[in-house]
């Protein structure tokens, strides 16, 4: 299925969870925060949240800044 991650269209397995997606993308899970359709998904809920076609995700982390 197609979802949008950080503005880019991505093909991901059907019915993937947030936790699985973070693993597939090889992200450090302690360092990122995830929004699905503008709602933050807390890390402890990642296992239980299934993604759907057309979902829009924002995945952020810390970068250098003042």
């Amino acid at each position: 299925m197609q979802i949008t991650i950080n503005g880019e269209s991505k093909s991901v397995p059907d019915a993937v969870t947030v936790a699985e997606l973070v693993r597939i993308l090889d992200l450090k899970k302690e360092r990122v925060a995830v929004e699905v359709n503008r709602n933050i998904v807390a890390r402890r809920e990642w296992d239980g949240v299934l993604l759907h076609p057309g979902d829009r995700l924002e995945i952020v982390h810390f970068v250098g800044g003042g």
Binding site: I5, N6, G7, E8, K10, L25, L27, V32, A33, E58, I59, V60, H61, F62, V63, G64, G65, G66
Partner: peptide
Amino acid sequence: VTVAVRRVNIS
């Protein structure tokens, strides 16, 4: 130390 919040570059 301050940090900023930005998108992860997934590509």
